[in-house]
C-alpha cells in the first residue's frame, strides 16, 4: 500500500496527464461522422506509432557489443517506423480520395 501511495505521489504529473488525456481522447472524436471512421482509425493508428521514440531510446542506450539487444532494438525501430510512415501515408491516401471526390462534385456543379 505504502509503495503504491509513494508511486502515485512521485508520478503525480503523469497521472494527471493520463486522466486528462483519457477525457480529451473521448471528447475530441465523440462527434465523428461514420464516413470518417476508417480514416480516423487509420490516423489514430499512425499516432500510436510514437512508440518509435521508445525504440530509438532503447537502441541509443544499448551497449555496442550486446548484439541481442541491438538486433531486438533494430527490429523495433524498423517496425515502429513502418507503423508511423505507413499509417500516415495510408491515411493521407484515403483522405485524398475524399478531396478529389469533393472537387469533382464542385466541378460538376459549375458545369451544370
Amino acid at each position: 500500500m505504502q509503495t503504491l501511495l509513494d508511486f502515485v505521489q512521485n508520478n503525480l504529473q503523469q497521472f494527471y496527464i493520463v486522466i486528462l488525456s483519457v477525457f480529451l481522447g473521448i471528447e475530441v472524436i465523440s462527434r465523428v461522422p461514420s464516413v470518417l471512421h476508417t480514416p480516423l482509425m487509420s490516423g489514430a493508428n499512425a499516432i500510436h506509432g510514437v512508440i518509435i521514440i521508445g525504440a530509438i531510446i532503447v537502441m541509443g542506450e544499448a551497449p555496442s557489443d550486446n548484439y541481442l539487444v541491438l538486433a531486438l532494438g533494430f527490429m523495433a525501430v524498423i517496425v515502429g517506423t513502418i507503423n508511423v510512415v505507413g499509417g500516415f501515408v495510408v491515411t493521407d491516401r484515403m483522405l485524398e480520395m475524399f478531396k478529389t471526390g469533393k472537387q469533382a462534385s464542385s466541378k460538376q456543379i459549375k458545369e451544370n
Binding site: I17, V18, S21, G25, I26, V28, V32, A44, H48
Partner: peptide, 23 residues
C-alpha cells in the same frame, strides 16, 4: 511512455487508447 517518463509517448498513447475505445 510511463517507463521512459516520456510525455509525448504518454499523451499519444493514452489519446489513441481512449479515442480508439470510443471509436
Amino acid at each position: 511512455g510511463f517507463l521512459y517518463n516520456n510525455p509525448v509517448m504518454l499523451t499519444g498513447g493514452i489519446l489513441v487508447g481512449s479515442a480508439g475505445a470510443i471509436l
